[in-house]
Each structure stands twice: as structure tokens, then as C-alpha cells.
């Protein structure tokens, strides 16, 4: 049976409409890429809660901060490359420092804007956002996770960075799945190796675990949708109960999920780790799966690295 594939930006676009109808204080602050970030329905159905500040990201962040001081819950909607780097200092100064309830909701995370090339592929964003005090950083693994986590974000008081995919990715959850911010989801139990992934790479980890089982290696699979605050308890459990960990992410291996997990493991003082992710290099215009493959972000490589750790 063919797996259903949906981009997580679509999950965001649908959830934000439902949220906006329930709560008039929820606003969308668009930066002239609303159509691409899936806020079209919100714009049409909730015009009084919809703002478009033009191609002016810095201003968008500041306007959102001002709105938040007056009790609004603005979602600044843009691409991950711009929402994390173009406006990094505005987010730091006007949103994180005053601890304002602004959500930066970004499509085009990782290499998912594949054909757009390196300028639009965000491989540094989660790491950058992770270093900002008061910030929460999330990447849902599929369409249903996106819907659920956007709803959780709206109910959460404080700055948050949410990252979605441009391209369609396989659906791994169903509509009844529940998520808790800062709490990893255990998708498979195993005693030999732990695969900790987030976003669009969770499905690769699941598939790899299936292949590993055929080889007699039992893999635990965690969806670490929130990389900050990191579920340290879940990581430590992997260290103590398994001791062999592989992280998988559509993000630079520097400062993202792999680094966050490495920090916990290093302080624990035991356990082996292999990080799979973007190899600290810019991408290019190419098919999404090819870009992942160029960086070893494949089911085959996860299996190979797991086998290597078992030796």
C-alpha cells in the first residue's frame, strides 16, 4: 500500500484556521509568502485576524512583539531560513528577552525546499534558535504531528520556533495521536540501539528500525519533536538502558538535535553516539531525497551506522 504523503506546512495551515476560529486573539503575521506557507485559508476566513506586513521580516517580528504585549498571540509566518536568521536578533531582543508570546512558524525547514537551492534550505535554524534563552524549538514529524503541535503551541505561553516541511513527507501518525511539548515520543522499543530523530527524518528511523530487526538488532525509536527543552530523561534512559545512540536530523550536524543529545550524553559520561545529519555544507538545487543522500541521511546509512555501533 502506498503511504500517504503530506507536507507538514499543510498541517500548520489547517490547524491555525481552527485555532483562529476558537480564539480571536490568535493572529497571523504574514511576510508575503503566506500562499507558500499555507495561510491562505486563514486569510480568507479570518480577515480581521490576518496581517500582512510585506517583505519585511524584521518589522514582522517587531510588530508581533508589540501585538503580544497587548495580549495577542501572533504567529509570524515565513520560511525557516529567514525566520531564524534574517530576524534572529529581533527574535532575541524583542521576543525572547521580554518573554513574549510570539510563535515563529516556518515552512521550508531543512533541505525540504529542495529545488530552491541553498539560499532557501535552512540547515542552521534550529541550532540558532536553540541558543536563545526562553525559546522553545519544535519540528513535527508529520502532518498529524504538525496539527497537534501547532495546537499545543497556541496553548503554550512563551516564545516558540516551529519548523515545517515544504515537501510532502509520509504520514506516520493518525489524527488521535497526542503530543506533549518537551516530551519525546517512543515509536518503537528496542534494547540494542536507540535512534533519535526529528521532523522529516523520523520516518527514516522507523524504516531503519524495521530493517535492523530483520538483522536481529532491536532499535528503540524516539521522535524528539522538541529539541529545546530537550527531553533529557528520554536521552538518559537511552544511555543507561542501551548505551548506543544514533541521532538523525535534516539539519546541520552542528548545534541541532545531534549536538543537543551529545551534550546530555557527554555529561552522563558514558554511551556511544553517532550523528547523522547535514555534513556542515550548503546544499544545491536537487531532488529532496538526493540532498538527504548526499549527506548520508538515508535508511541504509542509519542501518550501517547501527551495525557499526554494535561491533
Amino acid at each position: 500500500m502506498e503511504t500517504k504523503k503530506i507536507a507538514t506546512r499543510d498541517g500548520f495551515g489547517e490547524a491555525i484556521v481552527e485555532l483562529g476560529k476558537e480564539n480571536r486573539d490568535i493572529l497571523v503575521v504574514d511576510i508575503d509568502i503566506g500562499k507558500s506557507c499555507k495561510t491562505g485559508t486563514f486569510r480568507k476566513e479570518l480577515p480581521e485576524q490576518y496581517l500582512n506586513v510585506g517583505i519585511a521580516e524584521q518589522n514582522g517580528a517587531g510588530v508581533a512583539a508589540g501585538l503580544a504585549t497587548c495580549g495577542k498571540i501572533p504567529f509570524v509566518v515565513t520560511y525557516a531560513a529567514f525566520g531564524s536568521m534574517r530576524i534572529c536578533e529581533m527574535i532575541r531582543q524583542e521576543i525572547c528577552y521580554p518573554h513574549l508570546n510570539v510563535k515563529i512558524a516556518c515552512s521550508h525547514g531543512g533541505v525540504t525546499p529542495a529545488n530552491d537551492g541553498a539560499s532557501h534550505q535552512a540547515i542552521e535554524d534550529m541550532g540558532i534558535m536553540r541558543t536563545l534563552p526562553n525559546m522553545t524549538v519544535i519540528m513535527p514529524a508529520d502532518y498529524y504531528a504538525a496539527k497537534a503541535l501547532v495546537k499545543a503551541a497556541a496553548a503554550f505561553d512563551g516564545p516558540m520556533y516551529l519548523r515545517f516541511t515544504r515537501d510532502a513527507i509520509p504520514v506516520i501518525y493518525d489524527e488521535n495521536e497526542t503530543f506533549e511539548i518537551g516530551k519525546a515520543k517512543k515509536l518503537r522499543e528496542g534494547k540494542d540501539v536507540a535512534l533519535i530523530a526529528n521532523g522529516d527524518t523520523v520516518r527514516l528511523a522507523i524504516e531503519a528500525a524495521g530493517l535492523l530487526a530483520e538483522k536481529g538488532i532491536e532499535a528503540r525509536v524516539l521522535d524528539m519533536h522538541t529539541i529545546k527543552p530537550l527531553d533529557e530523561q528520554a536521552v538518559n534512559a537511552c544511555v543507561d538502558e542501551i548505551g548506543r545512540i544514533i541521532t538523525v536530523e535534516d539539519h546541520n550536524i552542528l548545534n541541532g538535535l545531534g549536538s543537543a543529545v551529545a551534550e546530555v550524553i557527554a555529561e552522563r559520561g558514558k554511551g556511544k553516539l553517532k550523528r547523522i545529519g547535514i555534513q556542515d555544507q550548503f546544499g544545491q538545487s536537487a531532488p529532496y531525497e538526493r540532498l538527504l543522500a548526499m549527506n548520508g541521511i538515508t535508511v541504509e546509512n542509519i542501518v550501517a551506522q547501527a551495525e557499526a555501533l554494535m561491533k
Binding site: L51, Q58, N59, A61, G62, V63, A64, A65, G66, L67, A68, T69, C70, G71, K72, P74, E89, M90, Q93, E94, Y97, P98, H99
Partner: peptide, 29 residues
């Protein structure tokens, strides 16, 4: 700092950013 000092409506200090915040407040009104 708005979280430290009563009467401060928005934290500022990095130039160029306050006006956008003021616009957000006026928009909220």
C-alpha cells in the same frame, strides 16, 4: 527591560526595533 521595570512597555536597546513594536501595539488597539 519590560520584565524588570514597571512602566516599561517594551524592552529596547538594539536600535531600529522599537518602532515596529510600537506599530504592533497601535495595531492591537
Amino acid at each position: 527591560s519590560m520584565t524588570k521595570c514597571p512602566g516599561i512597555d517594551i524592552s529596547t536597546g538594539s536600535l531600529g526595533q522599537g518602532l515596529a513594536c510600537g506599530v504592533g501595539m497601535a495595531l492591537a488597539a
